[in-house]
């Protein structure tokens, strides 16, 4: 005969475990993470005649629909310039990419609640958070658009950063290189 107390000893933890399982399953369906590893990021810092602009096609980004939490990450070495020498100078002299290999943004889409992910449309969004470039973090607030098409969101946005705010030094900043760099983001997320 198995005693009642023994059943209790087994059943309660068992059921509790089941409960936990249930809970975590629910958890996944309640919040959804949209992610991409092939987002695009352009920047333009042309100050003079010579074009100083680059593109990075390997932007790593994720966001959660429930909280609006959003992150972007890029490798500095992933920026492609038209001019090889410029790319080398960008990495070695300005961004010091061996020391600071990454740049990232961690923040929130403030009005995420206004977006219906099941309905196609173009929703304006406000983003706020910390942008870390060259090992220096600065607060950034900008607006952009979140477009939903066939249930897949695309985030586009444009903002500019003051290069010197991030501790990036160089003789040409403010001359050949603009003191503010324009940055454009275009990320198409998978779900």
């Amino acid at each position: 005969m198995i005693k009642n107390s023994t059943i209790k000893k087994i059943a309660i933890p068992l059921l509790m475990m089941m409960g936990m399982q249930f809970g975590s399953l629910q958890n996944v369906t309640a919040q959804k993470v949209y992610a991409t590893k092939t987002g695009q990021l352009f920047f333009n810092a042309t100050g003079g005649i010579e074009k100083i602009a680059a593109v990075n096609n390997q932007v790593d980004s994720k966001f959660v629909d429930a909280t609006g939490q959003i992150i972007f990450g890029v490798l500095i070495k992933g920026f492609k310039f038209e001019n090889q020498l410029m790319e080398d100078h960008f990495n070695e002299n300005y961004m010091e990419s061996t020391q600071f290999p990454k740049a990232d943004f961690k923040g929130y889409i403030k009005n995420i609640k206004e977006i219906t992910f099941t309905k196609d449309g173009n929703y304006p969004i406000d983003i706020e958070g910390n942008l870390t470039i060259h090992g220096t973090a600065q607060k950034v607030a900008t607006s952009g658009f979140l477009q939903v098409q066939d249930g897949k969101p695309t985030i586009t946005g444009e903002f500019s950063v003051k290069i010197k705010d991030y501790g990036i030094k160089g003789l040409y900043i403010g001359e050949k290189i603009a003191s503010e760099a324009k940055i454009k983001v275009n990320c198409k997320y998978q779900n």
């Binding site: 309660i12 059921l15 509790m16 089941m18 409960g19 936990m20 249930f22 809970g23 975590s24 629910q26 958890n27 309640a30 919040q31 993470v33 390997q58 790593d60 980004s61 994720k62 966001f63 959660v64 429930a66 909280t67 939490q69 959003i70 992150i71 972007f72 990450g73 890029v74 490798l75 990454k102 990232d104 961690k106």
Partner: peptide
């Protein structure tokens, strides 16, 4: 317990992206 777990996890365990490291 099931009910409690359900409620607790759905409300206080948001996915924290900031803890993840980006770009491998």
């Amino acid at each position: 317990c099931i009910v409690l777990q359900f409620n607790v996890s759905a409300q206080t365990q948001p996915i924290d992206l900031f803890a993840d490291s980006t770009t491998t």
